[in-house]
């Protein structure tokens, strides 16, 4: 490589390198700070207040609590499709997403609609007689099409 060619390629590579460094730095600066999300352990209710055939909503954790086969499950309200708040419908015994019409059974598994996976869950633990929801740890739902773990067909009376 002669001097002319070296300089010609060199300044272009330099410009690209500066551009990449700038883009990477700005990208990193704009990333949210850790802990800016929901985060943390949130105390909810005593275990015996969690119902077996319906759900209760815990506003501070944005979570539905329910009992599946004697096990307490915390389902995040955020629809795994596009983030709308999924509402529990007492009439049909299903979760219904108002945005694109996905429905989920009481265990948060996809019944119909475009949701690609079941509702996400939080890890729960019992401390000092209350259920604690760890909103920092998200367990992703089962992909759509997986068999349902509970046998509760939807009732009439969709919301």
């Amino acid at each position: 490589m002669d001097r002319r060619r070296f300089l010609s390629v060199g300044w272009k590579l330099g410009a690209v390198a500066i551009g990449c460094a700038g883009a990477w730095t700005s990208w990193d600066l704009l990333r949210p700070l850790p802990g800016s999300g929901l985060g943390g352990l949130i105390k909810t209710v005593p275990p015996d207040e969690v119902p077996a055939h319906t759900t209760i909503y815990v506003r501070s954790a944005q979570t539905y609590l329910t009992r599946i086969e004697d096990e307490i499950v915390a389902l995040w309200q955020k629809c795994p499709h596009l983030g709308c708040r999924v509402a529990w419908c007492e009439g049909s015994g299903e979760f219904e997403c108002p945005c694109h019409g996905s429905t989920f059974n009481r265990a948060g598994e996809v019944r119909s609609g475009p949701a690609p996976r079941g509702m996400d869950r939080f890890v729960v633990a019992e401390t000092d007689g209350v259920i604690q929801v760890d909103t920092g740890t998200v367990v992703r739902g089962q992909p759509a099409g997986s068999p349902e773990s509970i046998d509760e067909p939807p009732r009439d009376g969709s919301c």
């Binding site: 506003r59 944005q62 309200q77 709308c84 708040r85 509402a87 997403c97 108002p98 945005c99």
Partner: peptide
């Protein structure tokens, strides 16, 4: 209101 999605959205 993050706790209430209008229906339809």
């Amino acid at each position: 209101n993050p706790f209430e999605t209008p229906n339809p959205e």
